[in-house]
């Protein structure tokens, strides 16, 4: 570990404040039981990496946390508000939870700057000038201030994903959800996105990240969750998780993913 990383890790403080609490949560798609008895607590400042084979329910799990997917049984509390079918609660939670998608989902008909200012203006009712200042500051932070007036279609995949991160940050969220943020990117663009995410982690953001980037998990995460078949199989600190996996399925998964 270099000095910089050591310093960074020290700055990543976890507080006692509870941000997300999921208890005995189940979800079905029709007859198919996708999520089985999920229990998970996330404290402010935690960086959690969720991994597992495809179809294990990891994306569905984080999509339940801002109600892009509906759960059928159990409870999900986010920042002290319970997620129910109550639209008010859903809107309140979505204001505080940012999400970054695998396919970026930028709005192609708006410029980069407009993508970033849209939610602050329409959801937070921020004046346009102020929203633009905030947006430019975040675009600076993800290192693409010069692209502000372009359209998303004119940017590379890595740049688009960094815009998507900036767009979420403009809402000043308390929690950031990442749904396989680097899976659709070319190898040489993965690093530029991960660098932004690492920096974000060092700034103390509460993050949940579905990813296969095990290097990211090792350096940034304070907890790794392994899912398979809709269940949380194993949950541990990264050091322990990678060096001493408990269950057979975890060992198998790690041997496959780390083999090459």
């Amino acid at each position: 570990m270099t000095d910089h990383e050591a310093q960074g890790a020290a700055s990543m403080q976890v507080s006692d404040q509870e941000m997300i609490r999921i208890s005995e949560m189940h979800k079905w798609y029709g007859q198919f039981h996708v999520l089985k008895n999920i229990n998970l607590n996330v404290k402010a400042g935690e960086r959690i990496v969720v991994c597992g084979p495809s179809g294990s329910g990891k994306s569905t799990l984080i999509r339940c946390m801002n109600r892009l997917e509906e759960h059928q049984r159990g409870e999900i509390w986010v920042d002290g508000v319970e997620l129910t079918s109550d639209l008010k609660n859903i809107e309140q939670i979505r204001r505080e939870v940012g999400m970054v998608f695998q396919h970026f989902n930028l709005f192609p008909h708006l410029t980069v700057l407009e993508n970033c200012t849209l939610a602050p203006i329409w959801v937070r009712k921020m004046p346009k000038g102020e929203a633009e200042d905030v947006a430019r500051a975040y675009l600076e932070r993800v290192k693409i201030p010069e692209q502000a007036d372009k359209f998303p279609g004119q940017l590379s995949g890595g740049q688009q994903q960094r815009v998507a991160i900036a767009r979420s940050l403009c809402m000043n969220p308390k929690i950031m959800l990442f749904d396989e943020p680097t899976s659709a990117l070319d190898p040489e663009m993965i690093k530029e996105v991960l660098d932004v995410m690492i920096e974000l982690a060092h700034d103390g953001m509460t993050m949940l990240c579905v990813t296969h980037e095990m290097g990211f998990a090792k350096t940034v995460a304070n907890r790794v969750i392994f899912m398979d078949g809709g269940e949380i199989i194993e949950e541990n600190e990264p050091q322990e998780f990678f060096n001493n996996p408990q269950s057979e399925r975890t060992q198998e998964f790690l041997s496959q993913i780390l083999a090459h």
């Binding site: 801002n66 979505r94 939870v97 999400m99 930028l106 959801v123 767009r167 809402m171």
Partner: peptide
């Protein structure tokens, strides 16, 4: 989904 996730009605 992106619009929903950022809290737009």
């Amino acid at each position: 989904e992106a619009a929903d996730a950022m809290g737009l009605k």
